[in-house]
């Protein structure tokens, strides 16, 4: 039971983290139809920015610097690059953000090398927040979860109760209508892009101290985030939240399963089906496969995603 609770909490924290990155992506996507391939790169940049600035301004300062710096990078990417290819259509935008994704990874490799850097949980934060039975739940995990929760409610409130939030929501629903009403969609969009990037940066800054901070971060989380957007549905925060949490919890539990494929085949009475070597593979070692398998399943069951009504 304790192990169950801990796995559940871990899963929720990871899910919220994924959601922090997905939220910006799905809103930007919903508003302008731009799929930002580099979004997860901003997440990676956040970790590096916090690592770098943390030496001078301390851990908490590093979080702030990372958030702001990545927000600025996002803003400049949108205004200086993305805008240039807008008139060529979504394909060119997609290629541009893909190029950005590639470039950011290479630049980070140039500056910091291809291997992980030593961005760790600071010692003063290495304590146990609470224990369940005899399982300990570390503080920084709690911090990750809390950051994501604050961000979630903040985003939600901003969208719900502010004028700009109203415009964004309207723009996600009906982009042409809003500009017809005289709102400056390009500026709102730049702002949204910057805020989305900043949130990804913050997510990276908190996640980077627990997960390895390396150039591969962007790629690893990026594909999970895509899964979230595909199964969550276009421009839907609720869909993204549901998908993120589901993936987080599923992955977290799968890691704890000790059975192998061989056990499964025997249970199904298929032990004759000797796929070479697959029998010895543990489920836990392919927990990473689950999000993608889930995506394929959702595609079959509801092609437009949990909350999607637009194709």
């Amino acid at each position: 039971m304790d192990a169950f609770l801990v796995a559940l909490l871990n899963g929720l924290v990871y899910g919220l983290l994924v959601f922090m990155v997905s939220a910006g992506l799905t809103l930007v996507f919903g508003m302008m139809g731009v799929l930002n391939f580099a979004h997860a790169s901003f997440y990676m940049l956040g970790a590096y920015a916090a690592f770098l600035s943390g030496r001078y301004v301390g851990f908490w300062g590093g979080l702030v610097v990372a958030t702001l710096a990545v927000g600025l990078v996002g803003l400049f990417s949108e205004r200086l690059l993305l805008r240039k290819v807008r008139s060529f259509g979504h394909t060119q935008e997609l290629l541009l953000t893909y190029g950005l994704f590639f470039m950011i990874e290479e630049v980070v490799k140039l500056l910091f090398g291809p291997t992980p850097v030593a961005y760790r949980v600071p010692d003063e934060l290495r304590f146990t927040a609470f224990t369940i039975g005899n399982s300990q739940f570390p503080f920084f995990r709690l911090l990750m979860g809390a950051t994501a929760l604050v961000m979630f409610f903040g985003t939600f409130a901003a969208l719900r109760f502010t004028r700009i939030g109203l415009i964004v929501r309207a723009a996600v629903e009906r982009p042409q209508m809003v500009s017809a009403l005289g709102h400056n969609v390009p500026i709102v969009f730049s702002g949204l892009f910057a805020v989305g990037s900043a949130l990804a940066g913050l997510a990276g800054a908190v996640a980077g101290m627990y997960y390895p901070t390396s150039p591969a971060m962007a790629h690893e989380l990026g594909s999970i985030v895509f899964v979230v957007v595909v199964i969550g549905g276009l421009g839907s925060l609720n869909g993204a939240l549901a998908a993120s949490l589901l993936i987080g919890v599923m992955t977290s539990f799968a890691v704890g399963i000790e059975s192998t494929f061989g056990d499964l085949f025997r249970a199904l009475g298929l032990s004759g089906l000797a796929l070479p070597g697959l029998e010895a593979v543990q489920f836990s070692s392919i927990a990473g496969v689950l999000p993608y398998a889930l995506m394929l399943f959702v595609l079959l069951w509801r092609p437009a995603g949990f909350a999607g009504n637009r194709a």
Binding site: L35, S223, F226, V227, V229, L275, L278, P291, Y292, A311
Partner: peptide, 27 residues
């Protein structure tokens, strides 16, 4: 799906296959 969804699904399928292949050493 089409468009950017297609793009994302191709990424995800690649990750799926990679995760399996890289752990299935005997094959």
């Amino acid at each position: 799906r089409t468009g950017v969804y297609f793009a994302m699904i191709t990424v995800a399928i690649t990750e799926l296959v990679r995760a399996i292949v890289q752990r299935w050493d005997s094959m």
